[in-house]
Simulated assay, not measured.
Amino acid sequence: MPNATPVIHLDIRNSSQSAPGWVNVNASNGEPYAYRYTGGDDGAGGIQLRVGQGRDTAPLQLDADRRYHIRDPGGCVFTGDTQAQLSWNGNGNYAGSIVDANTQVETAKYTMNVVDSGNGDCIIPCDPIIKNDP
Rank of each mutant, 00 (worst) to 15 (best):
G39D: 07
V114A: 06
G54L: 01
D72G: 12
T57V: 15
R55A: 06
N91D: 15
E106N: 12
N91F: 10
R67S: 11
E106Y: 04
W88S: 10
T107Y: 04
F78L: 05
Q104K: 14
N89G: 01
D100E: 07
D56A: 11
Q104P: 01
Q104M: 13
G80F: 01
G39L: 06
A95K: 14
Q85D: 08
T107F: 02
N113R: 12
R66G: 01
A64L: 07
D65L: 11
S87R: 14
D63S: 12
R50N: 12
T111I: 10
Q85E: 15
P73W: 08
V115K: 00
C126D: 06
A64M: 06
Y94S: 15
A101D: 11
R67W: 01
P59Y: 02
Q48Y: 03
G118S: 13
D65F: 05
E106P: 00
P128E: 09
I47N: 04
L60F: 04
I124M: 01
T103A: 09
G92K: 11
T111N: 05
G39Q: 07
L49G: 06
Q104L: 04
D42C: 12
G45M: 06
T103H: 06
Q104N: 11
F78G: 06
A108N: 05
L62V: 06
V114Y: 00
N102Q: 11
I98N: 04
T57C: 01
G40A: 05
R71K: 15
C122P: 03
L49D: 07
P128T: 07
D56P: 00
G96E: 07
V114N: 00
A44R: 13
G54N: 04
C76Q: 07
Q48W: 02
I98M: 02
T57L: 08
G96R: 05
A58R: 05
I70H: 06
R71H: 10
V99H: 03
M112G: 00
M112D: 00
D100L: 11
R67V: 14
D56T: 10
A84D: 14
D72W: 12
D56R: 03
N113Q: 14
A95F: 13
G118A: 14
L49S: 07
L49V: 04
T82A: 15
D116A: 03
Q104I: 02
A44I: 12
A84H: 15
G80W: 02
V99I: 15
G75Y: 10
S97A: 15
P125S: 09
G118W: 00
D116S: 03
S97G: 00
T82S: 15
C126A: 15
L49H: 04
G46V: 07
Q85F: 06
G52Q: 09
M112L: 15
D81V: 10
H69Y: 14
I47F: 08
M112R: 00
A44K: 13
S117D: 15
R66W: 09
Q61Y: 09
D63C: 10
V115C: 02
L86T: 09
